[in-house]
């Protein structure tokens, strides 16, 4: 039995839908006079499209280099913002989280995370080597940094869910534009990135 192909396809479709929705939300909110956090939400459409390309060949758009440069620049911007707004712990925290998210995307592009053409899994397939007591591991070992990214994204997702409430994400004095939906998109992108990194290993 092989690893299911439906999973990356499903996630890619959801990611593209999320990217489209967050882009539409950014464009429409000024027209409707509703508030949103442009700075925090602007990276979501490219992140959704880029992550979809990491999961499925059919969703591939730009080469890796432009995506890497884009998210590296965004990560630097958010890191600088985290320093500049250090007097406001809430904004500083959010900027730092976005910087981490961009860094993980950069990692995913630099470390070769991509759609797998291998069916099944070679994990746990050990063969005996020539010398007694020795084994050769045919599994590709997980990089420790990738595992750290998986842990960070999992805990980030639960932190987002823990603060999911309309009051918790309202922006400014104007009514926020569907604030819960954008948080759900963040969780989806985090899930998809984790899946993309975990799928590196077959």
């Amino acid at each position: 039995m092989t690893a299911p192909a439906f999973l990356p396809t499903l996630l890619s479709v959801l990611l593209i839908a999320a990217a489209g929705y967050t882009l539409w939300r950014l464009l429409v909110s000024p027209v409707l006079g509703l508030a949103n956090d442009i700075e925090a939400d602007a990276p979501l459409p490219p992140a959704g499209i880029a992550t979809a390309g990491l999961l499925s060949n059919w969703a591939h758009t730009l080469p890796r280099a432009p995506w890497t440069a884009l998210f590296a620049a965004a990560g630097c911007y958010f890191a600088a913002r985290a320093v500049s707004v250090r007097a406001d712990p809430r904004r500083r925290g959010r900027a730092a989280v976005h910087a981490c998210g961009c860094a993980i995307l950069v990692y995913a592009f630099l470390s070769g995370v991509g759609p797998s053409s291998v069916h099944g899994s070679t994990a746990g397939q050990y063969v005996m080597a020539g010398m007694p007591g020795m084994i050769v591991d045919s599994t590709i070992a997980f990089p420790a940094l990738g595992l750290a990214c998986v842990g960070v994204m999992a805990f980030y997702a639960v932190c987002v869910v823990a603060r999911l409430s309309p009051a918790g994400v309202a922006a400014g004095s104007r009514a926020a534009f569907a604030p819960l939906s954008v948080e759900i998109c963040r969780v989806l992108i985090a899930f998809a990135l984790v899946y993309a990194i975990l799928s590196m290993l077959v």
């Binding site: 899994s121 397939q125 077959v202």
Partner: peptide, 9 residues
Amino acid sequence: LQPYMFTEN
């Protein structure tokens, strides 16, 4: 969701 988990192994 790791590929190995979807196999009989």
